[in-house]
Amino acid sequence: MTEQPPALDASHVYICVATYRRNELLTRLLRSLSTEPIPAQNVIVVDNAPVPAAEATVKRALPLARYLHQPQPGIGTARNTSLDAVPTDAQAVIFLDDDEYVRPGWLAALLDCADSSGAHVVTGPVTPEFTGEEPAWLEEYGYVRRTDRPTGPWLSATGRGGQLRYRRPATNNTLVRAHWFTASGFRFDERFNFSGGEDSELFDRLLAAGADVWWCAQAQVVEVVPQERATKEWLRARAVRGGRVRALKMQAKGTRGGALAVRLAAESAVRIGYGSLRRAQKHLRRRPVTYTDDYYVCEGVGMAQALLGRGADEYARSSRRS
């Protein structure tokens, strides 16, 4: 960055939340936000249920928050509705999920990190809170992403010529300078409405346009994980979905027809083969198979499903959970 942006003022920072029939969890999130130093009217909640289902919840938990109903189904559409409600003088937008709540001091940590770094994007740790007993396999299998990294640039690698390559965040605890949405007009791609992956696709474009990303270890958020998601089967199904999303991204970037089929077939085979090899090596060495090992196989399966026109969309109305 060539110029340090002005310090963020909480009165010009907006929190965007998309929700779908999770009123109990939404209540917990909004109550956690009520103790943070941000005007309640800067919290924008978009209810994506077919008929208004969360308005009373919002008014009880955070009465001055802005409630919007978007009946058109789709996670990307819901997120875009919240962005359209952000005023042009906004300085930053923060994305949170409706199954999370923030730790005390979360907002101050996020804003302080953005101010001190000047980064375009600041993201922080999301710690799971299991509604049931924490799975015994968790530590070996590797379900939780690392949250113990220190505050600083969130780098994946250094490219050719020393060029920095930033990791891609998600919309579960992330601040973005508002000019990306107000002046530059970035929005979520609604082709990902039902598959998911709309956030990773958006951040791919932001990174390609020159956005930099910082990790803020002190900006802590908790994600409530229900028992049905605390299984290896659910994680593998999620990884299969990741393969279908990868295929959809190829289409979004212009790969079509026979070229898309060839690429999907090739990449699917490589991922399934590589993951299977990793798994076999683990078995031979009598070491535990990890989520990363399984992910390669499952992602390849998802890409094969996309090639064959099969597989269910995670955010389709019939499959979304209440």
Rank of each mutant, 00 (worst) to 15 (best):
V102A: 14
E134C: 08
T123L: 01
V121T: 11
L155G: 02
V144N: 11
L111E: 05
L164E: 05
S117Y: 08
W106V: 04
A157I: 03
T123Y: 01
R149M: 15
V126Q: 09
P135N: 04
L107S: 10
P125L: 11
H120M: 07
G105M: 10
A114Y: 08
R149K: 13
G161D: 10
H120I: 00
D99L: 02
L164N: 00
V121E: 08
V126L: 15
A119H: 08
P104F: 13
A157E: 15
V121F: 10
G142Y: 09
G159Q: 01
T131M: 12
Y141L: 05
V102W: 13
A136L: 08
R149V: 08
R160C: 02
G118P: 07
P150M: 04
Q163H: 11
V126F: 07
W154T: 00
V122M: 07
D99H: 12
D99G: 05
Y101P: 04
Y101Q: 10
R103P: 00
R149C: 02
A108F: 04
G124H: 03
T127E: 14
A114G: 04
P104W: 14
V144I: 14
L107R: 11
V122L: 08
L110K: 05
Y101H: 15
P153H: 01
A119C: 07
L155E: 06
G132N: 01
Q163L: 11
L107C: 10
Y101D: 12
A108H: 13
Y101T: 07
A114D: 05
L111V: 15
G124Y: 01
R165M: 14
P125T: 11
V121H: 08
D98G: 05
D148W: 06
G159T: 00
G162Y: 08
G152C: 05
A109P: 06
W137D: 10
E134N: 06
A109Q: 07
A136F: 07
T131I: 04
T151E: 03
Y143G: 02
W106S: 01
T151C: 03
A157C: 11
Q163M: 09
P135D: 01
G142N: 07
Y143C: 05
T127Q: 11
A136Q: 09
D99I: 09
E140G: 01
T131R: 14
D148H: 10
A109Y: 05
A119Q: 07
V122S: 06
Q163T: 13
W106D: 01
G118Q: 08
A157Y: 13
W106I: 03
G105N: 10
G118Y: 09
T127N: 11
T127W: 12
G161N: 12
R160V: 12
P104M: 14
R145W: 14
V122N: 06
P125Y: 12
R165F: 06
D99P: 02
C113M: 04
V144S: 06
T123A: 10
P128Y: 10
S116A: 14
P135T: 01
A108N: 15
E100N: 15
C113Y: 00
T158E: 13
D148I: 03
L107I: 10
L111T: 13
R103G: 00
R146D: 15
E140I: 00
T151R: 04
E140A: 15
P150D: 10
D99S: 03
L138K: 15
P128Q: 05
C113I: 00
L138A: 15
F130S: 01
G118D: 07
W106L: 08
D112G: 11
T158P: 00
S116C: 02
P135A: 03
